[in-house]
């Protein structure tokens, strides 16, 4: 009756509300935790101590070289056709503008195809605004990650992107972007949906839109951070691993409570809950707190490289990085037999409405690095319809989280990990 024991203990028993309380303490204490900062390293030390305070002492860290991109002053002012301040968040790794800023006319496009169809003379010396309407994150985010490179290739002096979000109350959403090789690095930033639509309407009416963009930032590549590994040793096959995970770093806005504080804390809760209930599975459950996810899955790539020769021991890998709202089930990658085993396990969670198995070739963010090598894995499938309202914004605070839903998530995460780690057979590759 393990599932019921865990659900009862977390949802109604002594653990009720503890995931939320610990998450709230954590994000209130450290606030945002960007890659390469002292805040992130202090938060890692805090999680290690929090785990040891639970009498779980099998905790190690592994060093990872990470970048530090630090935002300075950012300001966009519309000069023509009228004066207006434009809310802005620079994108990760963006270069600075000169101190006086860049003043130029705006060209609005809705897609890369539209950009490519433009004469180079029409782009050269101008600011390109990518006003791509949000469809799915994976589809729309390319304008954020590649927009600066594509605009620079056509001679633009700066690029702006409509925030990658389906909804906005004038909130800009930051995020990572990468400069391609052999292109001029131009400043790049996100503006709000409202301002992107405003500029788009003016542009389509034939009005000349002129902006001044002022952005300052610094970028260093030689900082050191750490992945944190908490092992809850299995009693029969300690070398075999079932991994649960979330990332501990965040963007420099809000508190990173949703992205990915919730995923971090339900993964931290797994060994804690099992230890408190004295439930010891056959295989080892490893909780990993990934570092430097936001600037490109840097901790996950380092882990995969460091543990490549042991990867056969990973039986299953789980990650929560798309919200910890009410759990609905799992988004699973693996063979037909692996998916059927997980589907059978999920049937045990009908009482909390978390029995749905969604198939995906590449679930999660960090774990995609390992799943793509053939390891079966899953991400938390949850009622995250509003996730991208808050993603990478000042609005990502503990206020977004719900105490009961975090309890459901922690209980579900723990029970699923326990069952997989305790079965008599491995999840097949």
């Amino acid at each position: 009756d393990v599932v019921n024991e865990i659900l009862q203990y977390v949802i109604e028993g002594d653990f009720k509300g503890q995931t939320y309380d610990e998450l709230a303490k954590f994000v209130d204490k450290f606030g945002p935790r960007p890659s390469g900062t002292e805040s992130l390293e202090n938060s890692i030390d805090y999680m290690i101590q929090l785990t040891r305070d639970e009498d779980i002492n099998n905790v190690v860290t592994e060093e990872v070289q990470v970048p530090l991109w630090e935002r300075g002053e950012e300001k966009i002012t519309m000069h023509e056709p009228r004066h207006k301040n434009i809310a802005v968040l620079g994108l990760g790794r963006s270069v600075s503008t000169p101190p006086e800023g860049i003043t130029a006319e705006v060209v609005v496009v809705k897609s890369f195809d539209e950009l490519e169809s433009q004469e180079e003379n029409n782009i050269k010396g101008k600011i390109v605004l990518f006003n791509a309407i949000f469809t799915k994150y994976g589809e729309t985010t390319v304008y954020r990650t590649q927009g600066a490179t594509r605009a620079a290739q056509k001679g633009a002096v700066a690029s702006l992107v409509r925030s990658v979000a389906p909804f906005s109350i004038n909130s800009p959403h930051t995020g990572a972007q990468n400069y391609g090789e052999n292109v001029t690095k131009i400043p790049t930033a996100a503006i709000t949906i409202e301002d992107a639509d405003l500029i788009n309407r003016m542009y389509e009416r034939g009005e000349k839109v002129v902006l001044n963009i002022q952005m300052q930032s610094t970028y260093e590549t030689n900082k050191v951070s750490r992945n944190t590994l908490v092992d809850y040793k299995g009693i029969q096959y300690p070398e075999k691993l079932v991994i649960v995970s979330g990332h501990i770093d965040s963007w420099d806005v809000g508190q990173g409570a949703m992205d990915d504080g919730g995923g971090l804390f339900i993964s931290w809760a797994v060994p804690v809950i099992l230890h408190r209930l004295n439930l010891r599975p056959k295989r080892t459950i490893r909780s990993i707190f990934w570092t430097a996810e936001e600037l490109g899955l840097i901790g996950a790539y380092a882990y995969e490289e460091r543990h490549r020769n042991e990867s056969d021991n990973i039986n299953f890998i789980m990650e929560s990085d798309e919200g910890t709202f009410a759990p609905l089930g799992l988004e699973v990658a693996g063979s037909q037999e692996a998916r059927c085993m997980i589907a059978e396990i999920l049937k045990l969670f009908q009482s909390i409405n978390a029995s749905t198995l969604v198939e995906s070739d590449s679930p999660g963010s960090d774990i995609a690095v390992l799943v793509n090598t053939g390891i079966p894995g899953a991400s938390l499938y949850n009622a995250n319809e509003k996730y991208f309202w808050f993603h990478h914004t000042e609005g990502d605070t503990i206020t977004v989280e719900n105490e009961h839903e975090l309890d459901l998530g922690a209980a579900f995460w723990t029970a699923v990990a326990y069952i997989i780690a305790d079965l008599s057979v491995d999840i097949p590759r």
């Binding site: 059927c340 059978e344 396990i345 049937k347 198939e359 069952i419 079965l423």
Partner: peptide, 26 residues
């Protein structure tokens, strides 16, 4: 693309023994 799984297709994939083992956790 993510698609909800049709679990009926699993009926011939897992052994009865394994299905019973998993059910025993409830």
């Amino acid at each position: 693309a993510s698609l909800p799984k049709n679990t009926e297709e699993c009926s011939n994939v897992l052994t009865e023994e394994l299905i019973k083992e998993i059910a025993a956790y409830d």
